[in-house]
Computed example of a mutant assay.
Amino acid sequence: MNRPVKRILGRRELVDFPAFALVGVEAKVDTGAYTSAIHCTNIHIETPAGQPPVLVVNLLDPGHVGADGCPLTFSEFALRDIRSSNGEVQERYVIRAVVQLYGKAFEADFSLSDRSDMKYPVLLGRSLLRQGRFVVDVARRNLSCKFLARATARRTRP
């Protein structure tokens, strides 16, 4: 019986969001959180005339590389109860997004919240870690981007 290979993630990783043209976003790997989260501000619903409602957000802070401050709109979203790190249940909007780790794309749910008071703008939760068959080594960090850098260096060697 062949078991799938599990990749190791560190306590912190640099992740890419190809649909948002964002690369190298710092993420905290959190096995205590079920749902992943991403920092957003100005989160609100707009209802264009004669159209279904859309969720409008400013993703990350304008100072982040690739974040241009332009609002993003999502036509597919949900409103869910999410337990915050302090145990408080909050209603948050949740979107599906593709995140890249080890050069592979994984689609996951991300709750949208203002994480400006947190050290990392992205949190990777258990539902994503399970689907990607990842294990976490808290003594290490940025393993995914280091793996990709080594693979690129091997391909470019003469």
Rank of each mutant, 00 (worst) to 15 (best):
S85F: 04
F134V: 09
R12P: 12
R157E: 11
I45F: 02
A78P: 04
E107I: 03
A37N: 05
F134D: 15
I8Q: 14
D68W: 02
V136W: 01
Y93L: 08
N86K: 05
V25E: 07
L124T: 03
N142G: 10
V29L: 12
T41K: 03
F134I: 05
D81L: 07
G87D: 04
F74T: 04
S127V: 02
I43V: 08
I8K: 14
M118V: 02
K104W: 08
Y120D: 11
F110P: 05
A153T: 15
R150Q: 13
L60M: 07
E91C: 12
R115M: 03
L124S: 07
M118K: 02
I45G: 13
T73C: 09
P4R: 06
E26G: 03
V94T: 05
N42S: 12
N142D: 14
M1E: 08
D114A: 02
I82K: 03
Q100V: 11
V15L: 09
E26Q: 01
H64C: 12
C145H: 06
D68A: 08
A33P: 14
R141G: 08
F17P: 15
E13W: 01
L59T: 03
G63K: 07
D137C: 13
S111L: 03
R141W: 01
V56M: 10
V15R: 09
H44A: 05
Y120C: 11
Q100E: 13
S85P: 06
P62W: 00
A67L: 08
K104P: 14
L60S: 02
V138E: 14
N86T: 05
V23Y: 13
R83N: 10
L14V: 08
R92H: 01
R133C: 12
K6Q: 15
D16K: 03
T31L: 02
L128H: 06
A19G: 15
A105T: 10
F147E: 15
V135N: 00
I43G: 00
K119E: 13
P62R: 05
A78I: 01
R140D: 10
F77Y: 06
P48V: 00
L22N: 13
L124H: 14
G63I: 11
G10T: 03
R11N: 10
H64T: 15
R150G: 01
A19Q: 08
E26D: 11
S111P: 14
S116N: 06
R154W: 15
K6P: 08
L143D: 04
P18K: 01
R12F: 04
A78H: 07
S111E: 00
S75L: 06
G69P: 14
G125D: 00
F74D: 06
G132K: 01
A105E: 15
R126I: 03
E76A: 12
P62C: 09
V5H: 11
R96P: 07
D81K: 13
T31V: 15
P71L: 01
R3T: 14
R80G: 00
R130L: 13
A78G: 09
N142W: 02
R141M: 11
P71M: 05
R12H: 11
T152I: 11
